[in-house]
Design a protein around this nucleic acid. Structure first.
Lengths: 228, 228
DNA sequence: TCGCTTCCTTGATTCTGCTCAATGCAAAAA
DNA sequence: TTTTTGCATTGAGCAGAATCAAGGAAGCGA
């Protein structure tokens, strides 16, 4: 069990809290607890009541749904520094998804009370919460867009090119898949089989090279405009 | 052109502003303008900068995306009393969707400035904005869930049963489609043809009766558990 | 009333991506 | 080493929903 005195220091480095006074940070820390998670641990089930939100320190967590037929759909993936559960906390409804650790992880749970308290006196903090929710909403819209309007191959390509900014066009780019392929496939709304086949196709055409979780993009420009 | 003096009165009746003092309402009203829309008018295009959000007074507006191939996907529909665009306003990014009036409509545009100003002094208002965004996020997650995990027939059924609460199980329930069928189909992520066929099937089985935009649900319980 | 537009339906056909079933393969456990 | 376990790949066949192509009906303006 690590020293709880670290919590304020970690909080103070998060964008969400970084402008707060040490006293405020301390107050937030009072409502915060560490969560040490083993791979596979469930943070909460769909339907559980929600009384706070989570911030990842290290490790990886998925938010997912299960259909009546037992099929799982991964809604979002979270890594270090990211937070989730704010919206449900504000709504006061039970969780619409469940959360499970994909690797051994460390997370913070920040209680609703200290947040609601923090909003009252701190407009800057409030704006940040609003901005955070807005970002989440924005990315969900993109999610809907890609599920609705793009083919499975296009979704895979989008995923590979995601946040790859203005990389020098000439060179190969190496990326590493952030989770098992079945998890990524589910997040892209395709089956693992289809995911595998699409990667294979892209390899055959010479646009990428796949080795386990490492993907090497040979030609960004061509990949971007690849029209199957 | 209607009398602008009505704006404060209308604002004061919205959940978002209803607890505000008359002075505050007046301040918000200063940053608000009326929009008289004809059917087909575009409120904003995808990519337009955003400097406020919208509240519907009457009429109907769709938010939609267009794919590179010209296919349209309706993301959300809004009617009287509902608002949209808050998230984009807070993010300061361009609109990720476009908005178009489906019928002659009247809407209010509330400028970003007066809202941001309002947040600073009014924690209750801030909480309401947070709650509003949270609801939007929640409904988008449900959207993703239904697109990802449910068949087209199930989505149609969900739509028909949507916000139908605890209606007496025994009686027929009449509902009226809130927009043209192709708009609803797009919102459900199916083609108009598929939508038509599904309604037809459900009719054949005796679960519903369709007459133009009026749908009569003959047996809610059976429809709910219909497993095709 | 006629013609026109807009919206909806219906049928035939195609195709994308899924299901089912084996098999491969590498790392961990025994 | 051998066995086990968890992922990943590959193939064959299928099915849900889209596309393509005509019609039909209802509302509207002239």
């Amino acid at each position: 069990m690590s020293n709880p005195v670290k919590i304020p220091a970690f909080l103070a480095h998060l964008p969400l809290f970084c402008e707060m006074s040490p006293e405020e940070i301390e107050r937030i820390a009072q409502g915060t607890r560490e969560l040490h998670l083993a791979r596979g641990d469930v943070l909460f089930q769909r339907g559980d009541p929600c009384n706070g939100f989570y911030v990842m320190i290290h490790g990886k967590v998925k938010l997912a749904l299960t259909s009546p037929h037992g099929i799982e759909k991964v809604v979002e993936l979270f890594g270090p520094g990211q937070s989730f559960g704010e919206a449900v906390m504000f709504l006061g409804k039970p969780y619409p998804v469940y959360a499970q650790a994909l690797t051994d992880s460390l997370a913070l749970h920040i209680g609703r009370n200290v947040i609601v308290g923090g909003i009252d006196g701190d407009p800057a903090f409030c704006r940040k919460m609003l901005a955070g929710l807005s970002i989440r909403l924005h990315s969900l819209i993109q999610n809907v867009e890609s599920i609705s309007l793009r083919s499975s191959a296009q979704r895979v390509i989008d995923y590979l090119l995601h946040d790859l900014g203005e990389i020098k066009e000439g060179l190969d780019v190496h990326i590493s898949l952030s989770a098992n392929k079945n998890v990524i496939a589910s997040n892209l709304n395709i089956t693992p089989e289809t995911f595998s086949r699409i990667l294979h196709n892209l390899s055959d055409v010479g646009l990428i090279k796949v080795e386990g979780k490492d993907v090497c993009i040979r030609d960004i420009a061509k990949l971007r405009s690849y029209d199957e």
